[in-house]
Simulated scan of single mutants.
Amino acid sequence: MRARHVDHVNLRIPADGADDAREFYGEALGFGIEDALYAADEKPFFDVRLSATAVIHLWPTDEFEPPERMNYDHVAVVVEEPVDEIEAELAEAGVEVEKTLDSPLGATGEAGAVYVRDPFGYRVELKARV
């Protein structure tokens, strides 16, 4: 078996968290939000479009439990911008940076990364392209 890339990640969010998710992932981070089928009640989740080949499925649920260090650390998303531009965009959007690392190792090598938390406690690594 030869894997090509991660297709999607499933994250549970609070039942009333869809608007916060749209604001954070769509407006603050600038990713596409695909929620027409969710809004039409045709599927129980909506998507954050990261690229042509990758999404985060966000599942609003009454059974949401915030992530803990024991069961979740982070999801890493490679972005085109260098670290200084990532930090500037986050500052402009009012998103607090948790930490910045010069060269954490990832699937494609070492590159700078900026870590933020979404409104539900999930850590997101925004990794500069190698």
Rank of each mutant, 00 (worst) to 15 (best):
R2E: 04
R2Q: 04
H5T: 10
D7M: 00
V9E: 03
N10Q: 15
N10I: 08
D16K: 08
D19N: 07
G26P: 02
A28S: 14
G30A: 02
I33N: 04
A36T: 11
A39R: 15
A39H: 09
A40Q: 14
A40M: 11
F45K: 00
F46M: 02
F46N: 06
R49I: 13
A52L: 01
V55D: 04
H57P: 05
L58N: 08
W59H: 15
P60K: 14
T61R: 06
T61W: 06
T61F: 10
D62V: 13
P66A: 15
E68Y: 03
H74L: 05
H74A: 08
A76F: 05
V78W: 07
V78G: 07
E80R: 15
P82D: 13
D84C: 04
D84N: 14
E85C: 12
E89L: 12
L90M: 09
G94S: 09
G94C: 05
E98C: 09
E98K: 11
E98V: 14
T100L: 07
S103V: 00
S103L: 01
L105D: 06
G106R: 00
T108E: 10
G109A: 03
A111D: 05
A111C: 03
G112L: 11
G112P: 15
Y115T: 07
Y115K: 06
V124A: 01
L126W: 03
K127D: 03
R129S: 15
V130Y: 07
V130Q: 04
